[in-house]
Design a protein around this nucleic acid. Structure first.
Lengths: 227, 227
DNA sequence: ATTCGATTGAGAACTTTTTCACTTACAGCA
DNA sequence: TGCTGTAAGTGAAAAAGTTCTCAATCGAAT
């Protein structure tokens, strides 16, 4: 198949598959079928096959996928065979929490540096990771071979930080600031907006829960009139 | 219009619109058009009108939307006119960071309690927020009128925590544990998987950047051909 | 009043994503 | 060697989501 444009929905799932394959490998499983995988995360097996098919033919008909082999493929596809160095900009609560979070992680990401504009923080350490002046970003990024940036600064500074980071040649940015950012097309930006997530959840709280078109509440006839 | 099933993509955007309206209101804007809004976050104006149309007719032709009026509507729709009390389960780095994050927040969410299984943490405080024993979740949740739970525990405990939380009658759960969770259909679960986000980003790093099916390395003429 | 520009609301068209259903291929066994 | 059962790969259909287009309608200017 080998399509030339892979959607983010697919790459997200690839990461999930890989995690699952790592678990399966640890459990000593030799093979796994798309159907077994699908059941692990309440997903359609055709979807898994289709996702994988974008990248090649990894399975064996009648058998399934060899766990180790597929794992190696996915690791390569996701670029996790190479080490990645992450810089976190913003040494507040969130930034420092993420420093540990990714530091712990079994994946191939290392938080190499923290950055902040607050003079009083600069030079301090969070675990093993030193806090640098954001002004020195380009230099430090180059020296430490940083290739991923995480923006964890207040919304009003985010655009500026993004530009500095892009200027320094970083091509992958994860943004936690709840604000829309403009970026050049060769920089991949992924925004995680916690406020939006929470508010969106609140919406579902506010609504009566509906299952199969009918209300689940005891004695309310019809809320949510169709059409 | 008033459709009966609103997608999460729409509710996420509604939250974004609301944030923007709050800013506009602060700037003193009286009205705003879908086109102006759209430009703020590189979005199509038809999309905004369609999103809003799910919930009613809020605009005035030839004028746009009255900022304050629309803001009030969105606030009600998202259920943000009521206070929400949030419990965070897992008083590790991430959990404590989120405690502050949402605590700061200007929105109508208050972190009312933290929970952990680690005896040494129980009784301590993070800012104003006390850490309770997870075993007491149901009691504390009832007393403090908690209606949203955030799961920030290691993956292997997440399913168990979710069940306890659901058992206590919580209907909205935000999950940071990188693992698929099973839940009853009347509990709204939203998972934010930071590892997946990062790995997915890594994929785009690993790939040559492609625009129209061709590689965009140094001296390729046209980027992004229309259509 | 009437015209004009602006902007919504909504159906149609289009695009993307997911699911279905079927064909092909391999492994194990008689 | 040929059957049989299982499961990948895949084109087509369905569903979901986005964008286009345009009639309807409002405010303002003439």
């Amino acid at each position: 198949m080998k399509a030339d444009k892979i959607s983010e929905l697919t790459t997200n799932r690839m990461s999930v598959y890989l995690r699952c394959l790592n678990e399966l490998a640890a459990e000593g499983a030799k093979t796994v079928s798309s159907d077994k995988l699908a059941k692990r995360f309440h997903l359609n097996s055709a979807q898994i096959r289709k996702d994988l098919a974008y990248f090649g033919e990894f399975g064996v008909r009648g058998v399934g996928y060899y766990v180790n082999e597929l794992r190696n493929h996915l690791t390569k596809i996701l670029g996790l065979n190479n080490k990645h160095c992450v810089a976190i900009i913003g040494a507040g609560r969130l930034g420092t929490a993420l420093t540990d979070y990714y530091g712990f992680s079994q994946t191939n990401f290392t938080v190499a540096a923290l950055f902040d504009a607050d003079k009083s923080k600069i030079g301090q350490k969070v675990g093993e990771v030193e806090i640098f002046d954001i002004k020195d970003f380009a230099d430090v990024a180059k020296k430490d071979k940083i290739d991923v940036a995480v923006i964890a600064v207040p919304a009003q500074f985010a655009q500026n930080v993004l530009e500095q980071v892009a200027e320094a040649g970083i091509k992958a940015v994860m943004n936690f600031a709840p604000t829309p950012l403009k970026t050049k097309s060769d920089v991949k930006l992924k925004t995680i907006d916690l406020t939006t997530s929470l508010e969106s959840l609140s919406y579902f709280l506010a609504q009566p829960i509906v299952t199969n078109g009918k209300d689940v509440k005891p004695n309310s006839a019809k809320r949510r009139i169709k059409k």
